[in-house]
């Protein structure tokens, strides 16, 4: 499996994905200029922009790498030659997932370093009212990466049942959007404002709330931007949720992939 992980990482680098990220990361250079337009919170704005840029790049990476990795192998018939080797389909798939996930972590680390540099620069020019909590910022980026690794697992699950890249790519984007609002929808359904809704819709919304991934838990941007304290208990629960949910998705994906017919 480690060999597959290594090959996956090599493949990603060979496709010049990393160079692509670096070009996009050039946008970091503009952040101090844009942030200086703010009236009262230049540092906060540069943090907002940096974290959003990281999140956006990681989203693209997880959707496209996660959604196309398996599909490309099947399309190019790599799977035939690889699966002829003494390696189980499950560990092949997990290796592919591991490679993409590791790349996203690496990208988050590199982009995170760039964000640290940008925010340091902005805060030196316009000292903020509140001190920046660097550890919160690091945890925020780590949780962002975790969120997108979870999304990669979703993309892999879609890949195992799909014959084209449409379902993995669009399915993943849809899951990302839905996973971001489940908490709001759930709160609305359980509030007095939703009296007019039919019980069936409420039941459906509640069911989806428990089934769909909940990305809201991994969004710590407000805490990082305004230096708000992080709830230790909540962080622990979120990590546990991440581990269990990714495990669940990968188990289902591995079971489907093992039975899949490949022609």
């Amino acid at each position: 499996m480690t060999t597959i992980i290594r090959i996956t990482l090599k493949g990603i680098f060979r496709d010049r994905v990393f160079q692509g990220i670096m070009v996009t990361a050039g946008a970091f250079l503009l952040i101090p200029v844009i942030a200086s337009l703010s009236m009262r919170q230049v540092t906060e704005l540069s943090l907002t922009l940096s974290l959003s840029l990281i999140s956006f790049i990681l989203l693209l990476l997880s959707v496209f790498l996660g959604g196309t990795s398996l599909w490309k192998d099947i399309e190019r018939r790599y799977t035939f030659s690889v699966l002829g080797l003494p390696i189980s389909r499950q560990s092949y798939m997990l290796g592919r997932f591991g490679g993409v996930a590791l790349f996203v972590l690496l990208a988050a680390a590199v982009l995170g370093a760039a964000a640290f540099a940008v925010v340091t620069y902005s805060s030196a020019l316009y000292p903020p009212d509140r001190p920046i909590v660097w550890s919160t910022m690091a945890i925020c980026i780590l949780f962002d990466a975790m969120k997108y690794i979870l999304l990669i697992a979703v993309a892999f699950l879609f890949s195992t049942v799909s014959t084209s890249f449409f379902l993995p790519v669009f399915g993943t984007i849809a899951t990302f959007l839905a996973g971001g609002v489940t908490q709001q929808v759930y709160e609305f359904v359980n509030s007095p404002a939703s009296k007019a809704l039919s019980p069936f819709v409420k039941l459906l919304a509640t069911g989806l709330y428990y089934i769909l991934p909940n990305f809201g838990a991994f969004d710590l941007k407000v805490n990082a931007i305004y230096g708000l304290p992080l709830p230790a208990n909540g962080l622990f629960l979120s990590v546990a949720y991440f581990v269990v949910y990714v495990g669940l998705l990968l188990s289902v994906a591995a079971a489907i992939f093992a039975r899949r017919e490949m022609r």
Partner: peptide, 8 residues
């Protein structure tokens, strides 16, 4: 809903 994790 559309802003996803980019509300700020």
């Amino acid at each position: 809903a559309v802003a996803a994790d980019h509300k700020e």
